[in-house]
């Protein structure tokens, strides 16, 4: 099977993730959408590694996974803290800072 279809799939996943970030209100769902975008990038790297015939892309995929895990740690810390303060995980609710 032509690896180019994996690129189409990755683009689709990335778009779903980006739309999820833009339209969803719950901070956890927004965060999951960001993770989907990072994993779409992983798929691009792995598919292109196959097409280009070198291993750089596979190496990158490992690093992106580690970075995504670190981002989960930081992100959940912030989201949980905001949730405990406001008893809500909506990202529309914190609205003290504006204009």
């Amino acid at each position: 099977m032509d690896p180019i279809y994996y690129i189409y799939l990755a683009t689709l996943l990335f778009s779903i993730g980006a739309i999820g970030v833009l339209v969803r209100r719950n901070a956890i769902i927004v965060f999951m959408s960001v993770e989907l975008m990072l994993n779409a990038a992983n798929l691009v790297f792995v598919a292109f590694a196959r097409m280009n015939g070198n291993l750089d892309g596979q190496t990158v995929a490992f690093f992106v996974m580690v970075v995504a895990a670190a981002e989960v740690v930081v992100g959940l810390a912030i989201i949980v803290q905001v949730f405990r303060t406001r008893a809500s995980a909506s990202i529309d609710e914190p609205n003290l800072l504006k204009y």
């Binding site: 690129i7 990755a10 990335f14 993730g17 980006a18 970030v21 901070a27 927004v30 965060f31 960001v34 975008m37 990072l38 779409a40 990038a41 691009v44 790297f45 598919a47 292109f48 097409m51 280009n52 750089d56 892309g57 990158v60 992106v64 981002e71 930081v74 992100g75 912030i78 989201i79 803290q81 905001v82 303060t85 990202i91 914190p94 609205n95 003290l96 800072l97």
Partner: peptide, 28 residues
């Protein structure tokens, strides 16, 4: 302060995802 951190984090993670996806396309 917490609100600022939440906004910075969500938008920052969003933009990093763009960065790495773009890197994937350039690698391709």
């Amino acid at each position: 302060s917490q609100e600022a951190a939440l906004k910075y984090f969500v938008l920052g993670a969003f933009s990093s995802a763009f960065f790495i996806f773009g890197a994937g396309l350039v690698y391709g």
